[in-house]
């Protein structure tokens, strides 16, 4: 069974793009801090999560991101979706990803 993006009110066909967020990059991590976040702790992305974040530079649906990463990493759709869905839910919850037209 496909993993769902567990973000309240988010439709599966929603196009998501980067929200108002400030970022820094190291050789193996991306640090994100959404402007509206009450926390002083940045979200830290590593590994394939960085590739997913980079894909959202242009708004995409989750399905499109899964397909793009599937080609890139030569992995099955469900494997990629299982990894991407909780990441997207976390980023939407933090305000780092938002719905775009």
């Amino acid at each position: 069974m496909a993993a769902a993006v567990n973000a309240p009110g988010l439709s599966p066909s929603a196009r998501l793009g980067r929200g108002e967020v400030v970022t820094r990059r190291t050789h193996d991590a991306v640090l994100l801090l959404p402007i509206a976040s009450p926390s002083d702790e940045p979200v830290v992305l590593t590994g394939s999560a960085i590739a997913a974040w980079d894909t959202f530079e242009v708004p995409h649906t989750v399905d499109e991101v899964v397909a793009t990463l599937g080609h890139r990493f030569d992995a099955g759709t469900e494997t990629i979706r299982t990894a991407v869905a909780p990441l997207v839910a976390k980023l939407v919850d933090a305000g780092a990803l938002v719905e775009r037209p």
Partner: peptide, 13 residues
């Protein structure tokens, strides 16, 4: 370095 970058982000916000 990561601690410095985390502070940069908080200040940028």
């Amino acid at each position: 370095h990561e601690r410095a970058l985390a502070l940069d982000l908080v200040l940028e916000r």
